[in-house]
Design a protein around this nucleic acid. Structure first.
Lengths: 123, 123
DNA sequence: CTCACCATGCAACCAAAGGTTGCGGATTCA
DNA sequence: TGAATCCGCAACCTTTGGTTGCATGGTGAG
């Protein structure tokens, strides 16, 4: 995974920013105040998140007199989506290796029972 | 997207925890100190992250005398991977809508040029 | 032109979370 | 027994998501 992808993921990992992107994708082009109207936090919080997204190149700002209109940058969000999918894919391949390994271990334990340690968990 | 998925995503969104999961997937079963040996932060930080992952059901702890061995919970990580892929997929469909919309707008602008506002950006 | 009304921008502040250091308790093993 | 090691707890620092309050500047009705 490139540092470039890491930068994108860091920007996109934040739950509030994902919601913000969602709303922005729906509205197409919107001002911070308009976005804040559809989100559970204040305009200033929206502005800060937009700044982060802008630094990562995920949104584009266009000043028009009194207001600033933001839009998502399709190519960059596309990259971000691909990066997310890559993470998921990597996990899947590694899980596959672990599962086959677990089966092998299980076969061993049938021939030669293990020393038995402590209990498992899950609160 | 379910709250259940949101919980998983919140746990998995953190960059350090993704790295931790990566190392844990490679080592298969490992103690906090062993994990910290392969990571750029201290054992205590690792322990905190493991606690978060454990609360989310993403890892399993097994006490064995002096040490605690952690393993990833395959089914849960599988869910997390699916949740990630879902986010990426949703973005893709919405981007698709936006792109076709942009084409339409572009065709309009060819017939009737727009008022021209301010400049774009990108630092 | 003026004034009231927006949308922003800026700064101070708060709380949660990632990360560190320091220390004490338990387990292993020479 | 005693040293080494792995862990857990607590205090502390810094970053960051989020808030409130106020100042600035474009807009538009009168």
């Amino acid at each position: 995974m490139t540092d470039h992808d890491e930068e994108l993921l860091a920007a996109v990992a934040e739950p509030s920013r994902r919601r913000l992107l969602d709303v922005l994708l729906v509205q197409g082009e919107a001002t911070p105040t308009a976005l804040a109207g559809d989100l559970p936090f204040t305009r200033q919080a929206v502005t800060k998140h937009l700044a982060v997204l802008h630094r990562a190149g995920l949104v584009t700002a266009r000043r028009d007199g009194r207001e600033v209109r933001y839009t998502v940058h399709p190519a960059r969000l596309d990259e971000a989506a691909r990066a997310l999918a890559d993470v998921a894919a990597r996990w899947n391949t590694r899980l596959q290796r672990i599962k086959t390994l677990a089966e092998a271990t299980h076969r061993d334990s049938q021939r030669e029972p293990q020393p038995a340690t402590q209990q498992d968990d899950h609160p």
